[in-house]
Design a protein around this nucleic acid. Structure first.
Length: 274
DNA sequence: ATGACGGCAAAATGCCGA
């Protein structure tokens, strides 16, 4: 019996990417997939198609934006939408007097074969002086507070999987200069990412793909993919116990090369057989 | 100095993305 295969993928619309996502799950023999940017309401999510391929799905959607899900063929228990203290964002704060922050569909959890999986879509930030940037940092701080607690049991098997919208080191972007003054590489964002590592979480990919030029995202424009100009912004951060079970991890870059691909490639993690 | 691609929708232009 082989070990669990866990993946994360920002699919940039599950309705546009449905056939290729299902095909990828089959081809890569994936047990659990954390999905981000489903871009649909709960009633629009194609659960039946996933069921045909043997997967149960937990989803929380927000229409055209955001949306996260977990698809599993090894059980899907204790589903949790959002995390305690998850901040909201007020889209109309600039133009309306009454604050109306909305808790975005950016976090969902489930326990699959004994692993607590979080599918996370960290806010983009937009610009260093944008309210969305403050929101991003608050969101990460609130998540870190909870995530640190999830490590109280040293045997806890926890995976924080998703689109972190942070490139933690200069090796993780094709041009550090290009991103100077922009989001994703700023010191506060990198410190926020580091705070998860300081709490004990580990980037499960880096040991298997060290150094520069390992990316999970390439902009659709400017021929970024053929020019190999990408960013490493998708991560599976694992608790120490879970990280110790990892046999190998890889970015499926070939999936990004296909016609009609998401701008993100999937990240696949293979655990050792029990 | 802005756009490019791509997706979505109170849709044929505006928004969001990183």
């Amino acid at each position: 019996m082989s070990g669990l295969r866990i993946a994360t993928w920002n699919v940039n619309s599950i309705r546009s990417r449905l056939d290729r996502v299902l095909d990828w799950l089959d081809r890569r023999d994936v047990d659990v997939l954390a999905i981000q940017e489903t871009k649909c309401r709960d009633d629009q999510f194609p659960e039946e198609r996933f069921a045909e391929h043997g997967y149960e799905v937990a989803h929380v959607g927000q229409g055209a934006w955001n949306g996260v899900a977990i698809a599993s063929r090894v059980g899907l228990d204790d589903v949790e939408v959002g995390f305690e203290g998850q901040p909201g964002f007020d889209r109309d704060a600039e133009t309306t007097l009454i604050p109306m922050p909305v808790v975005d569909a950016r976090a969902i959890a489930a326990t699959c074969a004994g692993v607590r999986i979080w599918s996370l879509y960290i806010p983009n930030g937009r610009g260093l002086t944008d309210p969305h940037y403050t929101y991003k940092l608050e969101w990460l701080a609130a998540l870190q507070t909870q995530a640190a607690d999830w490590l109280a049991d040293p045997d806890a098997r926890v995976a924080l999987a998703g689109d972190w919208n942070i490139a933690p080191t200069d090796d993780d972007v094709w041009s550090p200069e290009f991103f100077a003054g922009k989001t994703h590489t700023s010191a506060p964002e990198r410190e926020a990412f580091q705070s998860f590592l300081d709490a004990g979480y580990r980037d499960v990919l880096r040991p298997f793909a060290p150094g520069a030029g390992v990316y999970t995202y390439w902009d659709y424009t400017r021929l970024r993919f053929p020019r190999r100009e990408g960013m490493k912004i998708d991560f599976v951060l694992a608790s120490p116990a879970l990280a110790g079970e990892v046999e190998t991890a890889e970015v499926d870059v070939a999936e990004r090369a296909r016609d009609g691909a998401s701008d993100h490639a999937p990240l696949l993690v293979q655990l050792r057989a029990p």
